[in-house]
């Protein structure tokens, strides 16, 4: 073995850690810069964002895909928030710390790791076929909310848990009931954390294709959706088909679609970060 002086080995390990960090962020930087470089020219012909695709997707814009993505995400949040927060309240405030509760918590953690295609097949079986919702926005949104549920429960649980126990005790000691204590003291102080978690989980699913493949997605729709029973186009799937299924597709159009998806997801993350900073600053305890 060569013996290095402590100073040199210190420097070498710093260098190694620094290089590892650089290596870790290079792919991200490359992806974003290439997408922007190739996509921005088409992206900023604003018609691209605001018009329907034409000529078998070779011309026109991506409006229906943008709208489809937004619809699915927003509707799914309406389902997932009340159920997720309700479950988190039960787990954090009411459940006893017994085997049953431990199993539930373990199950929730594991649900977060189920592959999204499995959720897609499950959604196909339950919502599309069994509940006869058909391939539709509502079936897709329900499938997405199942996927978000573990994340929302976990973040809401954490947010509720971070409200100091002493607040609950102060309220209870005044003769206020447990439920009113939760509604008036615990929830208001947990809402920032709950919402941040919800936005983050939304950003995660906005880019998902697999759970929607059999439940909501159409290759092409000639018009915008009229009802939640319609099929929709979504950005990630549209990206996939324009990149692989359509010959003679102009490359910049593909990258412009990717740019649109990237901007939606990143701006949601950005909103969540800003909201978190804002609420931290205004936190009253």
């Amino acid at each position: 073995m060569i013996k290095l002086s402590p100073k040199l080995s210190q420097k070498l390990s710093y260098l190694f850690l620094f290089l590892a960090t650089i290596l870790a962020i290079i792919p991200g930087v490359l992806i974003i810069s290439i997408i922007i470089a190739k996509g921005w020219s088409v992206f900023f012909t604003l018609k691209f964002l605001t018009s329907m695709p034409t000529s078998g997707m070779l011309k026109g814009g991506i409006l229906p895909a943008i709208i489809g993505t937004f619809l699915l995400v927003i509707i799914s949040i309406f389902f997932v928030l009340p159920i997720g927060v309700g479950a988190a309240i039960y787990l954090n405030e009411y459940s006893k710390n017994n085997l049953f509760t431990k199993i539930i918590k373990l199950a929730i953690i594991n649900l977060a790791g189920v592959p999204s295609i499995v959720y897609g097949l499950f959604g196909l079986g339950i919502f599309v076929i069994y509940l006869k919702l058909g391939v539709s926005i509502i079936a897709g949104a329900l499938t997405l909310s199942m996927m978000e549920l573990p994340v929302v429960i976990t973040t809401a649980y954490g947010a509720l848990n971070s409200v100091p126990l002493s607040f609950r005790e102060a309220s209870l000691s005044l003769g206020v009931s447990r439920w009113k204590t939760i509604v008036h003291i615990v929830l208001p102080n947990a809402i920032p954390g709950i919402l941040t978690g919800a936005v983050l989980s939304t950003a995660r699913i906005a880019g998902e294709t697999a759970p929607l493949l059999f439940t909501a997605v159409a290759f092409y729709t000639p018009h915008l959706p009229h009802s939640i029973r319609d099929q929709v186009m979504i950005l990630p799937y549209h990206l996939y088909i324009t990149a692989t299924q359509i010959p003679n597709m102009e490359e910049n159009r593909i990258f412009a679609t990717a740019l649109a998806l990237l901007i939606i997801v990143l701006s949601m993350n950005f909103i969540a970060i800003i909201a978190r900073i804002y609420f931290r600053k205004n936190r009253k305890w």
Binding site: S166, E169, S171, L172, L174, W285
Partner: peptide, 29 residues
């Protein structure tokens, strides 16, 4: 608990205004 109030060792103001702290329990009750 309404009849037997309790003051804890550390002051625990609720994260709201002075006015709301006092009116909180009467409102809930």
């Amino acid at each position: 608990r309404k009849r037997v109030g309790m003051l804890f060792a550390m002051p625990i103001p609720l994260p709201m205004s002075i006015y709301e702290n006092i009116i909180y329990a009467p409102k809930c009750l």
